Simulated assay, not measured.
Amino acid sequence: MSYRFDGKVCLITGAASGIGRATAQKMAALGATLSLSDINRDGLAETNTSCGGDKHMTEIADVGSSQACNDLVSATVSRLGRLDFVFNCAGVNPTAYALTETTDAYYDKLMNTNLRGTYNMTRAAIPHLSKAEGGAAIVNTSSMMGLTVAANYAIYCATKFAIVGFTKAMAMELGPKQIRVNAVAPGYIDTPTNAGVVAGPEAMAEQEKKIAIGRFGTAGEVADVVAFLFR
């Protein structure tokens, strides 16, 4: 790998596990200083330790709150001196519900975290990213279900399709400010909150039949793509 991120600061939401943790570890290995955020305090501490700990910072923050996102960005810049990259990884994985069985609380939970959280963090970060020497970058987390659909996942699909549209619009809006905006759209990834993983080995085996390479992807493989998009 020929690129490094020494002297750069990367803010990662949803950093306590899965893709967020793997990306934190990847970026730390490539020299970045990290601002790590999640609502899972113990998981966040574990991620920080696995990334070397001392030079990084952690903050408990609910990305569904615009004030929490504003405070997180302000704290990052105050403590680490700058902001170059944002990985909007915080999200809620879906549960299969027919629309008639979907509650307002479930709708609000997915919308507030997956979509509003991406919006809140992006808006808060823009003024600081625009000052980054050599340009800055945002990577948002969509899903294969932001590109295709499945019955009983309407609300999750709605959030992830919206992130694709949001990302494309932000790429056009922020490009002139030298801020690149992209999205990753993971498929079946072996993470602790993946529905198939939670359901157990039989469910995973059924899902693996739908995957061309015959196995789940790994969080590290997604992290490789995110790091590439930051370079």
Rank of each mutant, 00 (worst) to 15 (best):
P176V: 10
K177H: 15
Q178H: 12
Q178P: 12
R180N: 04
R180E: 01
V181T: 00
V181E: 00
N182G: 11
A183W: 09
A183I: 10
V184P: 01
V184Y: 00
A185I: 00
P186M: 02
P186Q: 03
G187H: 03
G187E: 01
Y188I: 04
I189M: 01
I189Y: 01
I189A: 02
D190W: 02
T191Y: 03
T193N: 03
T193V: 09
N194D: 14
A195T: 07
A195K: 10
V197Q: 05
V198C: 11
V198N: 12
A199C: 11
A199K: 03
A199G: 08
P201G: 04
E202W: 13
E202T: 15
E202L: 15
M204P: 06
M204S: 07
M204I: 09
M204C: 12
Q207P: 12
K209Y: 09
K210L: 14
K210V: 12
A212Q: 13
A212E: 13
I213T: 14
G214R: 09
R215W: 01
F216N: 04
G217E: 02
G217N: 09
A219Y: 00
A219G: 14
A219S: 11
E221W: 05
E221L: 08
V225N: 05
V225L: 14
V226N: 01
A227K: 00
A227Y: 00
L229E: 11
L229G: 14
L229M: 13
F230H: 12
R231D: 15
